[in-house]
Design a protein around this nucleic acid. Structure first.
Lengths: 353, 353
DNA sequence: GTTAGCACTCATTATCAAAGAGTGCTAACA
DNA sequence: TGTTAGCACTCTTTGATAATGAGTGCTAAC
């Protein structure tokens, strides 16, 4: 894509801005009045023909106005991001306070997506903060009743998992204690990939008659780590998608809604976001998004960070002609606020799953 | 509604059955051929006029066939339920095995709704089994690190909740033990309403210098009970609703989908089902359902029971012209299967939230 | 380089007629 | 008295045709 003259740039911006607002193809006359360039519609028409040739805009049909192509959106969005960069510091001062502080992480995240969906009128998602690799902090065993041993596994970042283990006969308290010491000596600080056959063999050798419980305990620990590793995704406002007729075509709609319901598809999006170097706000227009069937949709993502270094992703999914300015601003404010909540005032980090 | 003659009954059944299949208003000629009554369309027309007057069917407009009213559906559905009653025993033998056995309750429920949605092509929901009143089994306290005490609360039915309590200074191990004994002596077997000011006062009196932690511990316990009490609702296939054009009208669709997303509305449905005497399968046609905006939808619910006496609800929501026979059969099979899984072969009841 | 003017294209909308489905009613029939 | 054939009538659906209007591309003049 060649460099655009300043005038062409202005016209392109005007076209996109106008299209975002109205959703209708925009014609030369509109631009002629809309901008401060004071040019006649004929001149605009010439420029528009050039812009079309360069691939920034297109006509739905011969006798219609122009709409932006993905490339056109790209130019517009890049411009916005440049403008918005300076303002981040300002926003930090503002403190609108979108969020109420709540104790349990789970409730907090649910609140975030709801607030976001309500404020933007798009579909939103957020993942719980995640560690690259989950390490065991300690394991605690105790008899619940004659047939059940409770294993509590605490991982880095104070995420807690329980697992109930059924046993055929009661185990004496001191034996539980011994087992507990043994298990912890091996598992403290271990990540999933540290638990190998060799380790298990050694443990079993030292466990004596209780070696057969070890399997179950280990299974529980592995299960717990995996569960902590499992990505929790919260969503809200998926039905907002229905509000935008340009996406309407039954198929796409239901494909996306299904994705929101089952949530698996959203994982790809999160992977992409997290793997990117840029931890700020990223915008994917149409097929740019690492998800199939996004032809008419755009995604804006942001990353937030928990104090212990766990990262989470926030995503907003809306029509390609979404209000990018507002979305970017809202996301910026929100990540700033989350930052403050997690890093300054974390009075209680609550439980999990 | 007066008693219907056998012939009118047959015609009504035929009309409803035909309408369920095609979705089109059904005319007299169709019925004349469809049934084994061998009557001319003119005769059918006369009978239909009567049925319309009695309020079982209606015409969308003068020159169209008839469609069932809610009363008409009711008659049809009652008939089905009567027929199906005898078959339950048969079904019990069949053992189709819709479900794979999985350990964690959460995964099991997710599987159930998915299987159900997949089999029926309607929107489905299930609640986790719930106790009328949650009782504490025991509380376990332990220091995680110098600033955190972990409280593990186990309730009836082996539902486990954790709560991390932040403390300003380390507490000695023996003190934790003392506190633990104290707390358990009061809270074991307690339900939410048992925890009153009097009890708290007495506990504080006996807690000595640690009385200030008691508040936090109690808060944690109450929080845990409340969380265990919170109704978990799993849903699937909400987008199936979009497949049925007769509901299409933007509003209703998005109202219902939102309900599925936020899940609050579904609580009313569950309340109604659980409060009903009849624990079998219940069918709500259109506005009969205890939920607003159900004009074009029907709900079929069933109750299942966990061994400890906790009950859960399964619901299927589809268009008023859903395939009631299939839905009822599927639900019957499923509850039988759940029954078996929970009551015979419960090898591990897993964890919660 | 800019602009006015004009012919041309194409989607949208309205109007109208024809077709078809189904009814209600009447009169004839068993 | 219940059943049926016949027919006029109603109302939706479909298709064709024409009118409208927005917007363009191109040419010629400024």
């Amino acid at each position: 894509m060649e460099q655009l003259s300043e005038r062409k740039m202005k016209i392109l911006q005007a076209i996109v801005a106008n299209y975002l607002e109205t959703g209708e193809p925009v014609g030369s006359r509109t631009i002629s009045k809309f901008t401060d360039l004071s040019l006649s519609s004929a001149t605009i028409r010439n420029e528009m023909a050039d812009l079309e040739e360069s691939g920034y805009i297109e006509q739905p049909h011969t006798s219609a106005g122009r709409i932006p192509t993905d490339a056109g959106y790209r130019v517009y969005v890049d411009q916005i991001m440049k403008e918005r960069e300076a303002e981040t510091e300002e926003l930090r001062q503002e403190k609108e306070g979108l969020l109420e502080r709540v104790d349990r992480m789970e409730l907090m995240l649910k609140q975030v997506v709801k607030v976001l969906a309500y404020n933007t009128n798009y579909a939103t998602m957020i993942t719980a903060p995640q560690y690259r690799e989950v390490h065991v902090k300690f394991v605690q065993l105790s008899m619940v009743d004659d047939e059940h041993v409770l294993a509590v596994i605490v991982t880095e970042g104070n995420i807690i998992k329980n697992q109930m283990i059924e046993v055929s006969e009661p185990i004496a308290n001191e034996d539980i204690l011994k087992l507990s010491v043994l298990v912890n000596s091996f598992l403290q600080g271990a990540a999933l990939r540290d638990i190998n056959i060799e380790m298990i063999q050694t443990m079993k050798g030292q466990a004596g008659i209780y070696d057969r419980f070890l399997d179950q305990i280990l299974e529980a620990v592995v299960g717990a780590i995996k569960e902590a590793d499992e990505r929790q995704i919260y969503t809200s406002g998926a039905t907002n998608i229905l509000k935008y007729p340009e996406i309407g075509d039954e198929e796409k709609t239901s494909v996306l809604l299904e994705a929101f319901e089952e949530k698996e598809m959203l994982n790809e999006l999160v992977d992409e976001t997290l793997s990117s170097e840029d931890t700020g706000i990223q915008i994917y227009i149409g097929d740019e998004a690492p998800v199939k069937n996004m032809k008419d949709l755009s995604v804006v993502t942001a990353t937030y960070e928990l104090q212990e270094g766990a990262k989470g992703t926030i995503g907003i999914i809306g029509p390609k002609r979404m209000d990018y300015k507002k979305v970017v601003d809202t996301l910026k404010k929100l990540t700033i606020e989350l930052d403050e909540i997690f890093n300054n005032k974390n009075k209680s980090k609550g439980d999990e799953t």
